[in-house]
Design a protein around this nucleic acid. Structure first.
Ligand SMILES: NC(=O)c1ccc[n+]([C@@H]2O[C@H](COP(=O)([O-])OP(=O)(O)OC[C@H]3O[C@@H](n4cnc5c(N)ncnc54)[C@H](O)[C@@H]3O)[C@@H](O)[C@H]2O)c1
Ligand SMILES: NC(=O)c1ccc[n+]([C@@H]2O[C@H](COP(=O)([O-])OP(=O)(O)OC[C@H]3O[C@@H](n4cnc5c(N)ncnc54)[C@H](O)[C@@H]3O)[C@@H](O)[C@H]2O)c1
Lengths: 222, 222
DNA sequence: TATTATATGTTCTTTTTTTCACAACATTGG
DNA sequence: CCAATGTTGTGAAAAAAAGAACATATAATA
């Protein structure tokens, strides 16, 4: 089966929407409601579910609890994913402080920095010297790393992480990282996101319409 | 002409790669070099340029300086874009501290927060009470706003921004914001990015290959 | 238990995006 | 000045993604 990035992103969105709907008291849901909540078509919802072997009942729609369980299983939420962060500056600190990862079965278990001022082995989430990162990753069998160091240090940190066994990297440094084929590197480039927003906002300002953009052109969910 | 989000993102990437190549001493470039640098095919580069009316010379490739100028013009870099940030917490502070926006003609001119502790009208980038945001946006004709407040406050802040004339919003709150058709809302959901990285990393771990994923499935540039 | 209304699952189309292939043409070197 | 070389620009083809339509199963109802 072929998997496609947009599809996986939608699964995550479905899951988030379902949590919200559940908290509102819903117990079951139909493809068109969910589609509305997420901003796609009902067919797309059913196709996505079908693709991943999730099925509802022909008249009763989908049980929200079942759906959430299924999505969590597909998205690997049946276990807690341990993550390390390299570079405890502005972005790194923001991530360490953020409380919203827990409920997604994500746990940042340590930070690493070159600057002794940032280091604090006794913190709620400990921050260790960067030199200890490789060993730590190995010993704790960490598979996911976040890179929040300046761009000039990013590739080296990535290499170390990969060397130690990391298979997925979320990179905030504004540059393309290189790695072997069997490591996933996801770049979040905030400058680019802002640039992009500006571009489309200008397009709207100039033309007065969003209609000139293709459907997928809308930067996001509007 | 139809414009497409991915295409615009690629334009930004080309531009970034070109700056790097220029700093390495390159003066002209061929579509295949640039393609390599960005991680797309040479045809794609030429198609994109062609689409936006950028042309090179049949044997000499493209002049990097011309290309950068063209891309900057297309991306609206001929003027400085003023941006305000609502919510000067972890993320908001990171953005205010970041020095990398300037060289992209983006200038964060003010922050706004509900918490008096965060306010500081005398800072390099001043932080004002949130109540003053609407007026400030109007008076300074700000078109772009960043939302970095907790999710429960996000929609209200968005409404105020839009009310005051903002046409593009970069939203960090993990929720879908609603707005009129002629306002662009770009959601950056960091939890989702991490989830996604984890999903694809797991796929790699389980199957040993990325080959099962379609081209666009690779979360990013690898 | 039969009927009916209704939402799913899936096939078939349409649209969008990417890649292929090559003619056109600029540069370089004789 | 001409041929050889090599890169662009683009129409045509292929691939991928999204959407429409509908046959089919099933919950509700009588
Ligand atoms: N802050 C933003 O808003 C923003 C926006 C866009 C991109 N980024 C990018 O995100 C990354 C992090 O940004 P930031 O604002 O948090 O930077 P920062 O300067 O605040 O923090 C960087 C941290 O990395 C540490 N560091 C430096 N070299 C290191 C090394 N070799 N090993 C380990 N740690 C090292 C530093 O001590 C510092 O604590 C940068 O690449 C930046 O370009 C940040
Ligand atoms: N920090 C992260 O790593 C992270 C990760 C994923 C998502 N997010 C999201 O990004 C947003 C910001 O995150 P953060 O970590 O910076 O949060 P934070 O709590 O550190 O900061 C929020 C700021 O907004 C201010 N605020 C609250 N209500 C306000 C209002 N009505 N008007 C103006 N200001 C108001 C607060 O005073 C605070 O300074 C949140 O929605 C969060 O869910 C953050």
């Amino acid at each position: 089966m072929k998997t496609n990035k947009n599809c996986v992103i939608r699964l995550s969105r479905y899951k988030n929407a379902l949590y919200r709907l559940k908290s509102l008291g819903f117990v079951k849901i139909f493809s068109d409601n969910l589609a509305d909540a997420v901003g796609v078509t009902a067919t797309q919802v059913r196709k996505d579910f079908s693709q991943f072997g999730i099925s509802g009942t022909r008249k009763g729609g989908y049980q929200i609890d079942d759906l959430i369980n299924n999505l969590n299983r597909l998205l690997g939420k049946d276990e807690i994913h341990k993550v390390v962060v390299a570079g405890i500056g502005n972005i790194g600190t923001a991530l360490l402080n953020y409380k919203g990862f827990e409920k997604e079965s994500i746990k940042i278990i340590a930070g690493f920095d070159i600057n002794t001022v940032k280091q604090n082995a006794a913190g709620e989430i400990p921050v260790f010297p960067i030199a200890e990162m490789e060993n730590f990753i190995r010993q704790n069998q960490i598979k996911i790393g976040v890179i929040a160091v300046p761009d000039f240090a990013a590739q080296q940190i990535a290499d170390t992480m990969i060397q130690a066994g990391v298979k997925g990297i979320l990179n905030f440094a504004p540059m393309r990282l290189h790695g072997p084929e069997n490591v996933v590197i996801n770049n979040v480039n905030l400058v680019l996101e802002l640039e992009n927003t500006i571009y489309f906002a200008n397009a709207v300002i100039k033309t007065g319409v969003v209609g000139q953009l293709t459907a997928s052109a809308q930067p996001d969910g509007v």
